[in-house]
Design a protein around this nucleic acid. Sequence first.
DNA 1: TGTCAATTAGACCAATCTATCTAGTTACAA
DNA 2: TTGTAACTAGATAGATTGGTCTAATTGACA
Lengths: 193, 193
Amino acid sequence: MNIKHNKEEILKKGMLLFRMNGYHNTGTNEILQETGISRGSFYNFFKDKDDFGVQVLDYYTTNSVNYINEVLSKKELNPKQRIIHLFEIFIEGYTKVNYKWGCLLVGMTQELSGINELFKEATGRNFEEFIKPIAHCIQEGQDAGLINKDLNSRAMALSILGSYNGALVLMKSGLYQEPLDAFLEHLKKTLKA
Amino acid sequence: MNIKHNKEEILKKGMLLFRMNGYHNTGTNEILQETGISRGSFYNFFKDKDDFGVQVLDYYTTNSVNYINEVLSKKELNPKQRIIHLFEIFIEGYTKVNYKWGCLLVGMTQELSGINELFKEATGRNFEEFIKPIAHCIQEGQDAGLINKDLNSRAMALSILGSYNGALVLMKSGLYQEPLDAFLEHLKKTLKA
DNA sequence: TGTCAATTAGACCAATCTATCTAGTTACAA
DNA sequence: TTGTAACTAGATAGATTGGTCTAATTGACA
């Protein structure tokens, strides 16, 4: 009696494992064991581990960006409030899992972009997907006079996303909540009209 | 004819390898080959690979912080100018190696802090060493009225260091110079009196 | 029903991983 | 000179790695 699996559940589990334990530190055996899939099936779905890694990353970004779009389209808040709300939600999530997780995209960038062109292409492309909706919402805020125009919307999105990622790294390093609070303060100041 | 090695040259080479290729992606064999040291010597100097990793990280931080202290004590610049100058120098360095490197401390945090208590202790402790001199210089600038007091010096240092680290991640992901420029803009605005 | 491609199972493989172990060498102090 | 501890060399080990291979099974469609 063979068991059928679909790609998405494998990608989801891989996302979890890579995010918690890192790419090189997660073996294919662990993936097989955790998903209950057989080796043959895995290599039927994915060319190799790198191919799987890239697909996991794309899956992560797709889901994250969908969520971002959802939050950033809440009509009961103005554009500036939406941005702040978005990062408050994200940070609350990390607090709830005791600061043990990180952003998969940051992790993969750090671990792989320097040594593997396939992943470098993927991380750059995926970051662009994150930047787009944030820059768009900032632009809205700027047009409405709610957010200053010291930087154009893309540069401001880059600066904010960068600060956020850096705060997550500091959090994970053992500084916990403090850098996250500092980031939120910084964010509010950055957006000030 | 046995060859004598000293710990520092091994640490230096390990630093280079971990920084370029990551911790899990660098095997002990590669370390032995690159340093020319024998397996026996390596395990005479270091308890195991993790012990080596932590010592490499400490070595990296000690050197970096020494350099930071040097730059931040240049009397021909005022405290605010020194901070800006510091990050401009760092960024110039990354530009020169074609954005291929990253901060070892960020890399080790991302790869190891979530799964290894030894490294979590080390990364937190090492980040504190980076924060100290920066916060100190900010405090000087605030006392002199050159830097605003929207945040206390430590929180501002956290925010800046976080933003810087995040910008390096974006750089490495394939966005190259753009996030670095956005960071420098942000830095100047953050410090504005 | 018969056919065929997609999928699954898991044994197997070569390469690589970290770490240990023994034997030999060196430096230095008594 | 001898004793001792630090250091070096490199063979070896056992576990684990990513990936391949063959055979069996499945599902969809002719």
